[in-house]
Design a protein around this nucleic acid. Structure first.
Lengths: 347, 347
DNA sequence: CTGTTAGCGCATTCAG
DNA sequence: CTGAATGCGCTAACAG
């Protein structure tokens, strides 16, 4: 049988309360000698306090939920690591929930997390239309921080995300200033607000240069390599005409890499014939040939900052800044051509 | 305030026990009418039973821990998904623990999991020398299933892993039968038994063909792309001599990809000058150019089977087969030359 | 500085 | 078929 606080108390010949006090590092209320004696016994017996009992008594579980669309997508692991690191140091457990890009599974996860009585939730929803989840959590008094997401009508919901619009504008600007004129933009699922934001950024860059956004070729992807590949293939068509675009900007690296594959198969050279830029900066971006130019998101930091914000919310604080915007970094690698002249500043 | 079972009971005008019965789907003891009425109220109030209280009363938390060395390594996410899927359907929560390939952090995680009173642990340790963790868990009566690991002196510890030795032998045999004679084997960290097993498989293949295993060039890596790159660079040396090996077999895909990069930089063609084979079959293997020939591990299934085994252990069963060996699949892609017939021909 | 006591929310006897 | 009582292990007043 696992020892309980009573066993420890008996062996140390003190009361339960005293053991509880040393367990919780209460500075006052326990003499140094007693404290040490109790600690020794705890260590020797390998006693581990029961979280469930503690939770019942305190109303806190020291556990949080972390919901992501798909951990197999290399963009997410760094986020998870960042969050986990910040949380573990404080003894928090992290319930990982992979929603498989399925809103129903996501809701199911929320339900389970509620039963687990998590103290808070980090939500990287599979859809920006996740107001329902936010409502449920709020009704139960469970704080929630959005990760890499903004939700319509919930602009004030606590969240951490990158400046998607600005990042997209910067990348597009680089393409336009380098001479590209026919851009193919591969966007992500429509149900994600970030898709719209990145698209808006692309258009911002066009307008800032008095170019017509209507000339942009749009393609729809789902963030997979295959979808990027298909999008470009479809646009290239069957004929042997030249490419209808001279640059591709994909809403994430995986689709950009898919695009590169399709381009290569058609005998189009990157970056000589067509330039390519991705978004995220996953490890894979450095491994393809040529290495991918991309808009790097500080994923690890996003997770860490999100966890820190959630912790403050759990502690009952009302932070002034409930939304944190991280700056993406534009990383020039091998899928864009060298720029000789000084380029203008983008929006 | 979140509703408790008492609130539901009061509103339904029944006792706590009755509500508890419908909550736990006890077939007997509640009339159909009463049951439905209670269910309706539960749904309407959005009542979620408190896991902590339940855990205290039953001694079960319906949560398990899953410890992995590094979720940013693409080999692990599929394992996690497999485990998570099997567990979620039963209402289990999964505490994800990333040990950062650090044994101390891993032990810290075990400690936290013990406090969370997890019902079991899936352990993909960062070192095969994890008997200490197994001991602690056993002492606390927490079942544990090893994932992708075998532990010395604990051959009977429940676990799920691939036939590493056989897989390595198969790949090496393919190389040798294709004419390769000077093999470079990039192994993983010495603290992992699988490193030794894969090495043994390589030697098996040599001996089976009456070739001397002593001619194998060994290099040490740490499963990172960079380490594979460095290993090959070191072996190639500074000179302009020809390559001292005609084939590279790396203990995982990432190192194999690093090796390919180093080879390419030195102007060596893959597979014409040097053949390359990896291990795992991560998504990346299909994306590099040429696509990587590799020994595919059924990672998703490993996670799923591990979870299923753990569930049985938690239920108190004593399965006959406590260790499950999965068969890897040898996948021939572009980094090995075509085999026309069984021939012997040195490069 | 230390001990006593009363719940926390639920499952589970045992009665009825 | 249903209800009342007990305790799971711990924290948090409150006493002393």
């Amino acid at each position: 049988m696992r020892p309980t606080i009573a066993d420890i108390a008996r062996e140390a010949e003190v009361s339960l309360a005293t053991v509880s006090r040393v367990l919780n590092d209460k500075v006052e209320g326990v003499g140094a000698g007693t404290r040490q004696r109790v600690k020794d016994i705890i260590a020797r017996r390998g006693y581990a306090p029961c979280g469930a009992a503690r939770g019942l008594a305190t109303g806190k579980s020291r556990a949080v939920g972390l919901i992501v669309p798909d951990i197999a997508d290399p963009f997410f692991p760094p986020i998870i690591k960042g969050a986990e690191e910040a949380l573990r140091s404080l003894g928090y457990g992290v319930f990982l929930c992979d929603s498989d890009r399925d809103l129903a599974k996501e809701q199911e996860h929320v339900r389970i997390l509620l039963e687990k009585r998590v103290d808070g939730v980090l939500l990287n929803s599979t859809a920006s239309d996740c107001a329902a989840q936010l409502d449920v959590l709020e009704r139960h008094g469970v704080p929630c921080v959005l990760l890499d997401r903004t939700v319509e009508g919930r602009a004030s919901a606590p969240g951490v995300y990158a400046d998607n619009r600005g990042g997209a504008a910067r990348a597009t600007g680089h393409l336009l200033d380098g001479g590209a004129r026919r851009l193919c933009f591969i966007t992500g699922p429509a149900e994600l607000a970030i898709s719209g934001l990145r698209r808006a950024g692309v258009e911002d860059a066009f307008r800032a240069r008095r170019l017509d956004p209507a000339t942009i070729l749009h393609a729809l992807g789902d963030y997979s390599v295959a979808s990027g590949e298909r999008a470009v293939e479809a646009l290239l068509g069957a004929g042997r005409r030249r490419s209808p675009f001279d640059a591709v900007f994909a809403a994430n690296d995986r689709m950009a890499i898919g695009a590169m594959r399709a381009l290569k198969r058609r005998g189009l050279r990157v970056p000589e014939d067509v330039e390519v830029i991705g978004f995220d900066d996953i490890e894979l971006a450095t491994l393809v040939d040529p290495p991918l130019t991309t808009v790097a998101q500080p994923a690890f930091e996003m997770g860490r900052r999100g966890a820190e914000l959630l912790l403050r919310l759990i502690a009952g604080e009302r932070p002034r800044k409930r939304t944190i915007v991280l700056e993406p970094t534009f990383v020039v690698r091998g899928t864009t051509r060298k720029r000789h002249s000084v380029r203008r500043e983008s929006t």
